[in-house]
Amino acid sequence: MTTPTPTPTPTRKRRRSSGKEESWSIPLLEEWGLTPMQQRVLVVLASVAGVLVTVVGLIVVIEGLGGDRAPERAAAGAAVVTQPRPDTYQAWASSKVFAPLAQSTSDSKPVTLKELFPTKTLKEGKVTLRLAGTGLETDCAAAVWGQGLVDLLAGGGCTQAARGLYVSADGRYVAQYTLFNLRDAASADRLVAELTTLYRGGWVHPLQTGRATFPTGGHTESSGHAMGHYAALVWIGRADGADPGPRDDFVSLSLTVRGVEKAIFRRVVAVTDGSP
């Protein structure tokens, strides 16, 4: 008996590999420093999404893939996370009361720490605050963090940044009052208004005294007050960083630390009377 010869199974001819990867290069992406593999990933993402990737979108993806600007963005993000900043913020424009201080040229005498913080204690109702530390900078950028805020101060012609840190008599609360000496009322109004959205990415540094400070990640509240060519930032919270409870009167706490503003009212009187 003759054994039938098996029919050969058709085989698909395999493509020969040249041993090299197909050259992948998009000039614009190459200029941004993307490797061929990173370019492939970007194109695949765009294809799956089924949309055109705009320049802004490209830059974001590039940074995620390790572009040149990624370290800068990472550093900025780290600053937001590690720097104490308020959870809430309210802005108040300058009122007519401060019209005599609309221009710094009419009130050119620099502020002093003795003028702003003449006493060691501020008291309002049941709240008593004790001065824990002060600081005065002629380089306003040194008193804050966040490039947006630094730029605002520079654009507003800031010449002084004065800070006073207070702790309540029972040690329960911490409050800081910061005063910026700017070019004019328009600059002060702009600063407090811009901080309505900017405060999460730029704020004042808390003074370090060893007695109390604003804990990173703790709940704090703030407000901005324009007074002629001055802009003040009020920053308050519990020393332990906890959320305020029924016993915590943050309104009275804010009013108490704003006792510092008596010095500004005295300047209104001095300018109105023509005093030096």
Rank of each mutant, 00 (worst) to 15 (best):
G237K: 09
R258D: 04
D249Q: 03
A239N: 10
V251G: 02
A231H: 07
H229K: 08
G259D: 03
V257D: 04
G237V: 05
R238V: 08
L255K: 13
T220P: 11
L255H: 09
P246H: 01
F250K: 01
G228A: 14
A226E: 09
A232M: 14
R238T: 04
P246A: 11
D240P: 00
E221P: 09
E261Y: 02
A232N: 09
P246T: 06
R258H: 03
T256E: 05
F250H: 04
R238I: 08
G237C: 08
V251Y: 03
D243M: 11
V260G: 01
T256N: 05
V251R: 07
T220C: 11
D248P: 00
R247M: 06
P244D: 07
T256V: 03
H225W: 14
R258N: 10
V257K: 01
P244I: 03
L255V: 03
A239P: 00
G259E: 08
M227L: 14
S222W: 11
H219R: 15
G245K: 00
A231E: 12
V234D: 07
G259L: 03
A263P: 01
V234A: 04
E261H: 06
E221I: 14
T256R: 07
G245D: 02
H219F: 15
Y230Q: 10
E221M: 15
R247K: 05
S252P: 00
D248W: 00
G241Y: 06
L255D: 13
V257S: 00
D243Q: 13
D249N: 12
D240I: 05
S252E: 11
R258M: 04
G241W: 05
D240Y: 05
P246D: 12
P246E: 12
D248Y: 00
D243T: 12
R238C: 02
A239L: 06
H229T: 12
L233H: 08
Y230V: 10
P246S: 06
G259Y: 04
L233P: 01
V251A: 09
V234E: 03
L253V: 04
G237L: 08
V234P: 02
S254N: 11
R258L: 01
G245L: 04
